[in-house]
């Protein structure tokens, strides 16, 4: 196991348009010619599950139409096409994706633009179009694993965009909106085919990771086949489609108590309260056989959210040493799985 070993892998590449994706300046009615090497890179990244987005100073409608003509529009998530500073565009994209800019690469032919972005986000990676062609097979652009879900990542984000649009125009409380989604959480024991996705989750997930520890494929494989441990994975779906496998829990199952050794949730599903439903499902399972539920927690600078979640569910600290705490669910906890999520146990 290791701590934050691969945090510098790129998850999203943000592209300039004029003189980067294509040669020429769109607004000046230049003759626009696609930069074929860049188009190939965008498609390669997409296959690797790395997201593509846009930060371009342009007229939105005109640029959108041009990208549609080139059959490229669908490749981009949360494109920012406006007259804003590019640092502002990048900030918006990062907020929409809910991932940190240290996992972003920004490609622009203008050194001024690259410097402006770098000034606001010193830990972002910036490249000129010429540089990216040479860097595309660098380790930071090669994900550790390509799973079934890697190649669907863009699809998952795009269905999320549709959901967000519907949420924005929805009239009524958030609760009514959640009810309207028909959320279903499926929980099952991991099988071998889930393991790569499970490993990918442990490497990609930081904010909602209870220990900050990542496990390798072979370590997870051993846990999966051990008598003392169960490895649970969960997937979420709603009326718009599947969110994929979004959570993982490694549980040490002893006679008198179950201990969650690791629990993590994809950041895409926080707003759907899937974390509460997943922990709630584990609570239900332990209640059924009348054992205590405990969890390991190693506090780091990124996972306070997870700590707060546990505390508000009704866990309390029964042991602490430095950053490590052992939490146990209070017997009088009145926590219930949110009523708008249906949990299915496929055990």
């Amino acid at each position: 196991m290791s701590n934050n070993l691969e945090k510098s892998k790129i998850k999203c590449v943000v592209w300039d348009l004029d003189d980067t994706l294509w040669e020429g300046i769109l607004i000046e009615n230049d003759e626009i010619k696609l930069n074929k090497a860049i188009v190939d890179i965008i498609k390669t990244l997409d296959q690797r599950g790395i997201l593509n987005s846009i930060a371009s100073r342009n007229n939105y409608e005109i640029a959108q139409q041009k990208l549609k003509d080139f059959k490229l529009w669908e490749y981009f998530v949360y494109p920012e096409i406006s007259w804003n500073n590019k640092s502002i565009s990048i900030k918006k994209i990062a907020e929409n994706l809910n991932i940190g800019v240290e996992t972003f690469a920004f490609i622009d032919d203008q050194i001024f633009e690259r410097e402006e972005v770098k000034f606001s986000f010193p830990n972002i990676n910036t490249f000129s179009p010429e540089e990216i062609v040479n860097f595309i097979n660098d380790q930071i652009f090669i994900p550790s694993y390509i799973t079934n879900e890697t190649v669907l990542r863009r699809y998952y984000y795009q269905t999320d965009i549709e959901r967000k649009k519907q949420e924005e125009v929805y009239i009524g409380s958030n609760l009514d909106f959640m009810k309207s989604l028909s959320l279903k959480l499926n929980i099952k024991r991991a099988s071998e085919e889930d393991l790569q996705r499970a490993e990918e989750l442990t490497i990609r997930t930081h904010q909602l990771n209870t220990t900050g520890i990542t496990y390798s494929y072979s370590e997870l494989y051993e846990f999966m086949n051990s008598n003392e441990y169960s490895l649970y994975v969960c997937s979420l779906e709603d009326k718009y489609g599947s969110y994929g496998t979004i959570g993982l829990a490694l549980v040490e199952e002893k006679k008198e108590s179950w201990k969650i050794k690791l629990l993590l949730m994809s950041c895409r599903v926080i707003s759907r309260n899937a974390g509460h439903a997943f922990i709630g499902a584990l609570i239900e399972l332990t209640k059924k056989i009348n054992v205590k539920l405990q969890t390991d927690f190693i506090q780091n600078d990124k996972n306070r959210q997870m700590y707060i979640t546990y505390k508000f569910i009704g866990f309390h600290e029964i042991y602490r040493h430095d950053c490590y705490s052992l939490l146990e669910l209070r017997e009088d906890s009145s926590f219930q799985i949110p009523s708008y999520i249906e949990v299915k146990y496929l055990l």
């Binding site: 609760l175 309260n273 974390g275 959210q305 997870m306 508000f312």
Partner: peptide
């Protein structure tokens, strides 16, 4: 945040299901 008004001073926002981790 919860798009509901008015909220009573003693309404349990957790039990109502409004509160996710974020």
């Amino acid at each position: 945040q919860i798009n509901q008004q008015p909220l009573e001073d003693n309404s349990d926002i957790f039990q109502l299901g409004y509160v996710n981790s974020l």
